[in-house]
């Protein structure tokens, strides 16, 4: 469904992504793990069009993906950015409507009700400013906002970052639920164990290169991966 071929990205003279090739099958969950600065966020941002690539191709359903952010969303790929990035000066409801920008206003209203069922806490706080929500609630809002676009592919950038353990589990449960509902998920995570547990396929990114990849279940037993990312 999503294919990335020989992708190279530079920040000035620093190489951020070097010859990255990966593919995401329809309906699957793919995780990208790696340490800080490995290029994980850069990869998602390049797909989303907010970071320009130097070379390489990104294909969605065998057609080149547009390179400007709003066209990428229109094509059906939306990102839940790192650090949640909800709009603090907008209400919870307005944040959701922003996520539903690509669909019609009436469809967005309908979708919003669905989101309130999926995330009751957001329904309770719908007219509250998003900036007043707790970290966990903001993460729920960020994910719900992404789902509002009715995407084919949801890009999740470090959804568990900075959350209490209880909430981390809750977030991963929600992601599992999203995959089950038929949405393809590309997940970037530092929490490698959790990410691999809920994904079908995993890519390991190191210094901007794909170091290893394989079915998550197989990589889980890989000695090297165990040592480096799963704490022995």
């Amino acid at each position: 469904m999503l294919q990335i071929r020989n992708l190279c990205v530079n920040y000035d003279h620093v190489v951020a992504l070097d010859d990255v090739t990966l593919s995401v099958e329809k309906g699957s969950a793919v995780s990208i793990i790696g340490s800080n600065g490995a290029g994980k966020s850069t990869l998602l941002n390049t797909i989303s069009g907010v970071v320009k690539r130097r070379s390489g191709e990104i294909l969605l359903n065998n057609r080149p993906l547009p390179t400007s952010p709003h066209e990428v969303v229109k094509a059906g790929i939306i990102q839940v950015p790192e650090g949640r990035r909800v709009f603090p000066n907008l209400t919870v409801a307005e944040n959701l409507l922003m996520g539903g920008w690509r669909i019609s206003a009436s469809a967005a209203k309908k979708k919003m009700r669905e989101m309130y069922e999926l995330f009751p806490i957001l329904g309770q706080r719908r007219s509250q400013l998003a900036g007043t929500l707790s970290g966990g609630e903001q993460q729920m809002l960020a994910i719900a906002r992404g789902l509002m676009a009715e995407p084919q592919i949801l890009l999740l950038d470090e959804p568990s970052l900075g959350l209490a353990p209880v909430l981390v589990n809750q977030v991963f449960d929600i992601i599992t639920e999203i995959v089950r509902s038929g949405i393809t998920v590309l997940l970037v995570e530092q929490n490698a164990r959790k990410a691999m547990m809920i994904s079908d396929y995993t890519y390991v990114l190191e210094n901007g290169r794909i170091r290893k990849h394989g079915k998550s279940a197989d990589l889980f037993n890989d000695e090297e991966i165990k040592r480096a990312y799963l704490g022995g």
Partner: peptide, 12 residues
């Protein structure tokens, strides 16, 4: 407040 995230939502 956040031009980048606004564009990530699909706003031109």
């Amino acid at each position: 407040v956040d031009p980048r995230t606004t564009s990530l939502m699909g706003v031109n």
